[in-house]
């Protein structure tokens, strides 16, 4: 295997991995603050992708379409918490909360199919180029640069918000010890709402960057959602840097698995995730277990 080919695999892997990382980050945010595993996260990504396709189809420029998409999916994420999970969280068990998120994902899929049809929908690349960029014999499409750059910006913003702002401090303290956070006057419910919204925004970023690359259908989200969870697991569920490392690792794993068989890509990578779970339940970064609102 020559070097260029290997590099090509890495570029492909990191591009998909970046999307997984964005989704995984959303999972981790929600999970750390509320202890809920949000299966609807993949559908939020799908909605994000569908929205940007619609906005661009209506002739909006990117500068308007991107913030509008992110804002709408942010609100959708908030709505999920406000109307379904928030009221349920007090009486809910792990099982019932998980089933609620599953139900929400089904509702979103169904509504998306009704609203946007079941055929795949496309949108042009953000910066259409005649041919892909070539560096050291490795071809990189303009959209994959957009994807990597966009995800880095999104994660950077998340990092700055978490580390440098009041809301970020409240989020972090609620995830470390919700009881103490509540005692010190943090409105944990509001923080949970924001966490869901932020997770939605991150998924929207993933979705809008991915939309030009694949044909978005109502069903796109469910598999990406599962892979986002898988990425979060690889990175040690609950760890934020872990989510990024896990996402990239899963992307690379898939691009290597595609050498064996493109069809079996999913199967191989998911089995690998199970192996990681068995051997290193705390993820490849190791580290301490994270306390959550509902001791999981």
């Amino acid at each position: 295997m020559d070097l260029a080919f290997l590099l090509q695999l890495i570029v492909t892997g990191v591009t998909t991995g970046a999307i997984y990382a964005a989704v995984a980050m959303g999972f981790v945010l929600v999970f750390r603050v509320t202890g809920i595993l949000n299966f609807a996260q993949g559908e939020l990504l799908m909605v994000g992708g569908m929205l940007i396709i619609s906005f661009r189809g209506a002739g909006w420029p990117l500068i308007a379409a991107v913030p509008a998409t992110i804002a709408l999916v942010f609100l959708l994420g908030c709505a999920i918490y406000a109307f379904a999970l928030g009221p349920a969280i007090k009486r809910g068990t792990n099982i019932s909360l998980l089933l609620i998120t599953l139900g929400l994902s089904q509702i979103m899929q169904g509504l998306a199919q009704i609203g946007w049809g079941s055929d795949p929908r496309y949108t042009p690349d953000f910066t259409p180029a005649d041919r892909p960029l070539t560096l050291f014999n490795v071809s990189v499409t303009s959209q994959s640069i957009w994807i990597m750059g966009g995800v880095i910006v999104a994660l950077g913003v998340t990092y700055v918000v978490l580390e440098r702002t009041g809301i970020g401090r409240a989020l972090r303290s609620s995830s470390i010890d919700p009881m103490m956070a509540r005692l010190s006057g943090i409105n944990v419910r509001l923080i949970s709402l924001i966490a869901f919204g932020a997770a939605g925004a991150l998924a929207a970023v993933g979705g809008l960057l991915l939309a030009p690359v694949i044909g978005m259908t109502y069903a796109t989200g469910s598999l990406i959602g599962v892979k986002g969870i898988a990425a979060a697991v690889i990175g040690g569920f609950g760890s934020i840097p872990g989510a990024i490392v896990g996402g990239i690792a899963l992307g690379l794993l898939e691009s290597i698995a595609s050498l064996i068989s493109t069809g079996l890509q999913t199967g191989i990578s998911l089995l690998a995730v199970v192996l990681v779970l068995l051997i290193l339940p705390d993820g490849i970064l190791g580290g301490r277990r994270v306390k959550t609102a509902v001791g999981v």
């Binding site: 697991v233 079996l264 999913t266 998911l270 089995l271 995730v273 779970l277 068995l278």
Partner: peptide
């Protein structure tokens, strides 16, 4: 045998991954 020692949400993820892998492998 190994995964039932995982915490409950990990278990959901593990069983889901195994299930999707089985369906994927069956298809190919």
């Amino acid at each position: 045998l190994p995964i039932l020692r995982l915490r409950s949400l990990y278990l959901a993820i593990a069983t889901l991954c195994i299930a999707l892998a089985i369906i994927n492998i069956t298809g190919f």
